[in-house]
């Protein structure tokens, strides 16, 4: 009987914790520089909306030949013959990224693209390789597709991503 009463009071405290967390989560979001919209939009919808600010064209779809594996990417990295872009959130880029890579996060594409545009235009005739977390992440494909829509010709996706890079013991920049 005492155990049931204990569990009951624990459950009440847990419910209080749920409500406090809910209020805290919404409050913190309101204080963010770019608060999340309360209605969810898929990555494709968000990027399309951002692209619409830049150009009046839908994002291009990539095919498998637009992806490169670890060995080809390492060659580009070591020769410095291409521009490397990190499509993950800026917070994860700040935690660690491929040396020399520039941050072009999918979730802040329009603003970041505008800031990076002079650099991107200087590399218009060189390979531009985009990566994200690795595995089945979509950010790199979406950003690469957006760059193709914007007229950049040789855009590739490093399919192994950050996970593949670190798994192979390659250097990291912070």
């Amino acid at each position: 009987m005492k155990t049931i009463s204990t569990m009951g009071s624990d459950l009440v405290n847990t419910l209080v914790l749920v409500f406090v967390s809910f209020a805290l989560g919404l409050g913190i979001n309101r204080m963010r520089v770019a608060p999340l919209s309360m209605t969810y939009q898929s990555p494709e919808q968000r990027l399309s909306a951002e692209l619409a600010q830049l150009i009046a064209a839908p994002p291009m779809q990539l095919n498998s030949s637009d992806s490169i594996g670890f060995n080809r990417f390492r060659t580009i990295f070591q020769s410095g013959s291409g521009l490397i872009l990190d499509a993950r959130d800026k917070a994860f880029y700040d935690q660690g990224h491929i040396p020399g890579a520039l941050s072009l996060p999918r979730d802040d594409f329009a603003a970041s693209y505008k800031a990076l545009r002079p650099t991107l235009d200087r590399h218009r005739d060189q390979p531009i390789v985009v990566y994200c977390s690795g595995g089945d992440c979509h950010d790199s494909r979406l950003v690469a597709g957006a760059l193709m829509s914007l007229g950049y010709g040789e855009v590739r996706v490093f399919s192994d991503g950050w996970q593949g890079w670190t798994d192979n013991g390659m250097p990291e920049a912070h």
Partner: peptide, 24 residues
Amino acid sequence: ASFKILPAELIVPIALSIPPFEIL
């Protein structure tokens, strides 16, 4: 969202609430 369980209206409020819930 990738779990396709919650309606779009609940995804963001829950995504914002879970981190403080777990930390607290």
